[in-house]
Amino acid sequence: MKKLTVILVLFLCYNLHAQQIKFVDGSWIEKIKAKTTDTIYVINFWATWCKPCVEELPDFEKLNKEFSQKNVKVILVSNDFKKQINTRLIPFVKKNNIKSEVVFMNETNPNNWIEKADKIWSGALPATMIICHSKHFYHFNEGETTYKELVKLIEPLITIK
């Protein structure tokens, strides 16, 4: 019985590890904004409970797939409830086979970090930020962004042909 428990615990640990989602905070956004590389960061603020966010996720996934060989990095910043990470966020990511990096915004007071993303952002989801330091490019959109719009925005910034 003891052996079984150990195996079970080990198995659970392994599984937890495999599904781990990185926690980030407002300073993480500042760090990305301060990066001096030519990486094009496409950062989408979303949540599993936000219908328009979920509807536009395939567009970001497609972008991630189509441009993964280029200097593009898609990051999906989840604003789910913390208590729903294991019950909702992780199962959602697994079920939909999300390939883009998913991180969790671990801030209790949105008022502390929303402006770090953008001064004009009201905090409504979804929202998308595109940054490319070497091209001095910065874009922020509150609301939905389509695949077509994303491509139009990032194409002039691509340096790896």
Partner: peptide, 10 residues
């Protein structure tokens, strides 16, 4: 004036 995460108005 404060900000908060929320559902975008439909």
């Amino acid at each position: 004036y404060t900000k908060a995460i929320g559902c975008g108005i439909k």
